[in-house]
């Protein structure tokens, strides 16, 4: 009996608790009466349990590789953060023009000054946010006028309808925080109190250095799809702001990093301790080329490992 059972689907169903109550009881009764079967059953239960533990450990190891220092700060609260980050980006860009600095490091510093003429960045509409569009004269006052006007159109097209009560709530918050734009958060979980979520909005009035730490954000607001392809094994393409990664990216976690340059946001892929440039307009499949520029590499590493 035991030999027939060992590798049977029946045993697997028993181990996975998929037998009916009657089947399970009958099987256990049989195992009680047959010591050999009973012993085999215990043996198989041990192995089943150990395989489960091994899988859990594998998944935990995977999760442990994900850096958590720079995450969570903005998660679920993307609107206000996005607005704050956007203002920093704009200011940093403006500062760049003003002082005509060339080093990338200079772009990563700057004074946080949350202005009312904030213009949202790409990642805002990736988060399905509804963002008020500044009036034309406000746009003209913006430091990066062209950038702002281009985004205006996109944002109007991607505004997400939200329940009225949420709009009201967002509006109230906006009144109390006049410096932040009226942005709603359709993805926000409403099951918890704000306090439980652990976010203190005062956090946004923080030094520029800290703000800029978070220009490194989750997948840079990108939708990413991994494609296993016989011909393209380490390639990518970018279609409609969606990144298609060709190759085996399943086993090793990767990270998308967004950096802000005077000409706009640039994306980088960090994978297996190497960095690769991602061209936003790369519609054709192209191979991933490792970055060799030592200054840029140093900056990317610094940002990626920043505690």
């Amino acid at each position: 009996m035991a030999n027939n059972i060992i590798h049977s689907e029946f045993l697997d169903r028993y181990l996975k608790n998929k037998l009916s109550e009657a089947e399970r009881m009958a099987f256990e009764e049989k195992a009680r009466q047959d010591p050999l079967l009973g012993s085999e059953l215990n043996f198989q239960k041990d192995i089943y349990k150990a395989l489960g533990e091994a899988r859990k450990n594998a998944l935990k190891s995977r999760l442990n590789q994900i850096p958590v220092n720079e995450i969570g700060w903005y998660n679920g609260y993307s609107i206000k953060i996005a607005a704050a980050v956007s203002s920093v980006l704009i200011l940093a860009t403006g500062t760049y023009f003003y002082f005509n600095h060339t080093a990338e490091e200079d772009l990563l510093s700057g004074v946080v000054n949350i202005e009312s003429n904030i213009t949202p960045d790409d990642h805002l509409h990736q988060e399905n946010l509804s963002v008020p569009v500044p009036k034309k004269d406000e746009l003209e006052q913006a430091t990066v006028e062209t950038f702002a006007v281009e985004k205006k159109k996109n944002i109007q097209n991607e505004i997400v309808t939200i329940p009225a009560e949420k709009k009201t709530e967002a509006g109230e918050k906006n009144n109390s925080k006049a410096l932040l734009p009226d942005i709603t958060r359709p993805e926000l979980v409403t099951d918890f109190e704000e306090e439980t979520q652990g976010v203190n909005y005062k956090d946004f009035e923080i030094p520029a250095e800290k703000m800029m730490e978070h220009t490194l954000y989750e997948n840079a607001g990108l939708d990413v799809e991994n494609i296993v392809h016989h011909q393209y094994n380490f390639h990518y393409q970018m279609i409609e702001h969606k990144l298609y990664l060709y190759g085996n990216f399943q086993d090793t976690p990767y990270k998308i990093i967004a950096l802000n340059f005077d000409e706009g946001k640039k994306l980088f892929l960090e994978y297996n301790e190497h960095f690769y440039r991602l061209n936003n307009k790369q519609q054709e499949i192209a191979s991933l080329q490792a970055i060799e520029d030592s200054v840029l590499l140093k900056e990317l590493k610094k940002i990626s490992t920043k505690k």
Binding site: R62, L63, I66, V68, I71, N75, Q197, V224
Partner: peptide, 23 residues
């Protein structure tokens, strides 16, 4: 079976969920 979805979830709710335990 896309494990990257787990990575994304992990990042998304890390602060919120760990905050609950820490509190």
């Amino acid at each position: 079976g896309d494990e990257r979805a787990l990575d994304d979830l992990y990042r998304k709710y890390y602060k919120m969920m760990t905050g609950i335990i820490i509190k």
